[in-house]
Every structure is written in structure tokens, then in C-alpha cells.
């Protein structure tokens, strides 16, 4: 279709190699702090890009990603924890069999995290996609809360509010960025395929989509389940990065952060989601100083925890007023554009 297809593919591969090289340098030269931020960025890219698939591309305003991240985190953590650690952690009620005796490799636990999250999405999808618009948002918001409440109360599986501790810190820069690259690649491919086109059709005009033979229900399910799969994997990576998880990590707050990212990036743009995920994660660290006590010479400001969220919220409000399209709108990064800008003529 595109005469520059081969060139673009080579550029993409080269870009990935350069990214991996930069990560290698950061991993060997950078401080623990830098590496930690890079890992966070990768996980947020996974979460944002997959969230964008259902909210931005398919136009279904789901507010449940926290549920899938939670399911993914718990699933993979429970699968990698050794029986001994589980015995130490579960002090109120012992962990149920067979979870109490299982220990699986990290990669298997990540895939399982994705699969379990996807299965949950499939179950949720049946009632959820009988609704549209605002109603869908409320129903998914409800499900997100339900999952958190269940995590809080199933003492013998999730250890309740105590959470899980001592999770091995398996997540390193290669796992995190490896999965980020895979996620972007696969979801990007899906969006560009005719299935992605059908998802966009569902977003623009559901009645017209049905008129061209698209099963709208099924395509919403596909987007929702795929998105949940990657959110589950992201959750698994997150659990093995922070090594301690508890239900409070997965409140609506997490969904809200992801929502800021995809709206700021431009609903429907994978590129936008990636850029915004980077800015958000990095900005969150750079803005840490606003929560510290400040001495401006003439006035002493005490530290205000949560001040960063105020700033992010203000940014979101400003985006909604002045730039509703976000950073990218629905546009995507593409090599043809880059080459034109750089004055390297391709065949057109």
C-alpha cells in the first residue's frame, strides 16, 4: 500500500535498536533512581497504550483499568511467591490450596496475569456492553470498586488489607521495556488492521458500523479484553517492581492517572499515550519539590502532600478547555512525516 513500507520498517527496527542501546547505557551508567523511573515509564506506557485501545480507539469510556491492573498484580505475585513467604505473610488466615504451594517462573506468572485479567474482562463485558456512554462509565467504575473490595475481603487469597509482601523484584529494565515494546507493537498492529478500523467505526457511529456488517458488541469485547490482557501484564510487572502490593494501590486514583495520560496524549492516539505516559511519570518525579516544605525567604510554606495531583488536575482542566484534542489528537507518529520534515524525499 505504502511505497515506503520497507524503508519505514527498517527505520522502525533501527529505532528500536537505538532505544535498546540507550536503555543499556542507562542501565549500566544510571543511578537506581533513574532506572526506577525508566521502569515506571515502561509500565505506564503499557497501561496507557492498552487503556487507549478501549477508551480512545473504540470510544467506550471504561473506568475499570484499576481492576485489571489489580487482578494482574495479585495473580502474578501469588504465582511467584514461594510457599514459605506466603506462610509468613498470611498471618490472619492461611493461603488457600493450591496457591499456597505453587511457585512459577516470572514469565509464566506475567502471562497468567494477562490471561486472568482478560477472562475477567470477558465476564464483565457481557453486562457492561449492554450499556453505552455515561452508563458504561458508571458500570465499569462500579466493577473497578468491586474488585478492590473483593481484594480487601478475600483474606485467604489476597491477604486482605495487609496485602502481599516480599514479592521478588524480578522486574528490571529489560522485562519492563521488553513488554512495553511488545505491547506497543501488537496494539499498534491491531489498530492498523481492519479490526482496528472496525473499532474506530464503532466509536464514530455505531448504527453505521452495524450497517456495514460490523458486530459492534463483539468488537467492543475484543478491545476490552485485549486491553485488559495488557493491563494485567502491566500489573504483574508493577507488583514485581514495587515488591509490596495492597488493595489501596488499586483505587480509582490509578484509573484517574491513566485517564489523564490518555486524554492529555490525545484520545485514540497510541503515540500520544506513549508521550503522555513518559511526561506524566517523569513529571511526577520532577514535581516532587512542590510537596516539600519551601522557604521562599519571606515566607515558609509547609509541605503539602498531594500537591502534585492538584497540578495534574489543573493541567487536565486546561487541556479540556484549550486543547481538547490533547497532544496528538488522533494522529500517529509516522516515518513518512519525519522524513518529509527532515527533507529526505521518499517515493510518494
Amino acid at each position: 500500500m505504502d511505497p515506503n513500507h520497507l524503508r519505514n520498517q527498517i527505520l522502525s527496527i533501527a529505532g528500536t535498536v537505538v532505544l535498546l542501546a540507550l536503555l543499556y547505557v542507562a542501565n549500566t551508567q544510571g543511578s537506581d533512581y533513574t532506572i526506577r523511573i525508566l521502569n515506571n515509564i515502561a509500565i505506564f506506557i503499557i497501561l496507557a497504550v492498552s487503556y487507549n485501545l478501549i477508551n480512545g480507539v473504540t470510544g467506550q469510556f471504561s473506568l475499570a483499568p484499576n481492576a485489571f491492573v489489580a487482578i494482574g498484580s495479585y495473580t502474578s505475585a501469588l504465582l511467584t511467591l514461594t510457599p514459605m513467604e506466603k506462610e509468613i505473610s498470611f498471618i490472619i488466615e492461611p493461603c488457600i490450596w493450591p496457591l499456597s504451594v505453587i511457585t512459577l517462573p516470572f514469565i509464566v506468572s506475567l502471562v497468567a496475569a494477562g490471561v486472568v485479567a482478560a477472562l475477567l474482562a470477558l465476564l464483565m463485558g457481557f453486562p457492561v456492553f449492554r450499556t453505552r456512554g455515561d452508563y458504561l462509565a458508571i458500570v465499569t467504575l462500579g466493577f473497578g470498586e468491586v474488585v478492590r473490595v473483593i481484594a480487601n475481603n478475600t483474606q485467604s487469597i489476597t491477604n486482605g488489607p495487609l496485602g502481599l509482601k516480599g514479592i521478588a523484584d524480578f522486574t528490571n529494565i529489560w522485562w519492563a521495556w521488553g513488554f512495553a515494546i511488545i505491547t506497543v507493537f501488537l496494539i499498534g498492529r491491531m489498530i492498523r488492521s481492519s479490526y482496528g478500523m472496525a473499532m474506530k467505526a464503532v466509536k464514530f457511529d455505531q448504527a453505521a458500523a452495524e450497517a456495514v456488517g460490523i458486530n459492534t458488541y463483539w468488537h467492543k469485547m475484543l478491545a476490552f479484553t485485549t486491553s485488559a490482557f495488557f493491563q494485567g501484564v502491566g500489573g504483574g510487572l508493577l507488583a514485581h517492581l514495587i515488591t509490596t502490593i495492597s488493595p489501596v494501590l488499586f483505587t480509582f486514583f490509578l484509573t484517574f492517572n491513566l485517564l489523564i495520560i490518555i486524554v492529555a496524549g490525545g484520545l485514540g492516539s497510541t503515540t500520544g499515550a506513549i508521550i503522555a505516559a513518559i511526561l506524566f511519570t517523569w513529571g511526577g518525579e520532577a514535581l516532587r519539590f512542590v510537596e516539600e516544605p519551601m522557604d521562599l525567604g519571606f515566607i515558609d510554606i509547609p509541605g503539602i502532600p498531594g500537591m502534585r495531583m492538584v497540578i495534574f488536575s489543573v493541567i487536565l482542566v486546561l487541556i479540556m478547555i484549550f486543547a481538547r484534542q490533547g497532544l496528538m489528537g488522533t494522529r500517529e507518529f509516522n516515518w513518512n512525516w519525519v522524513c518529509r520534515k527532515l527533507g529526505i524525499g521518499g517515493r510518494s
Partner: peptide
């Protein structure tokens, strides 16, 4: 008229084939 507004002209037609692939 109910076209898919953010898709190109050819994509609007291609999508009609999607249900048959």
C-alpha cells in the same frame, strides 16, 4: 449521511469488506 468521519474515503469503503474477511 453517516460516514466514519475520521477515516479516509478509501477506509470508509474498506471497512465494508471487514465483515467478510
Amino acid at each position: 449521511i453517516r460516514l466514519f468521519s475520521e477515516l479516509s474515503v478509501i477506509e470508509n469503503v474498506m471497512i465494508g469488506y471487514h465483515c467478510r474477511i
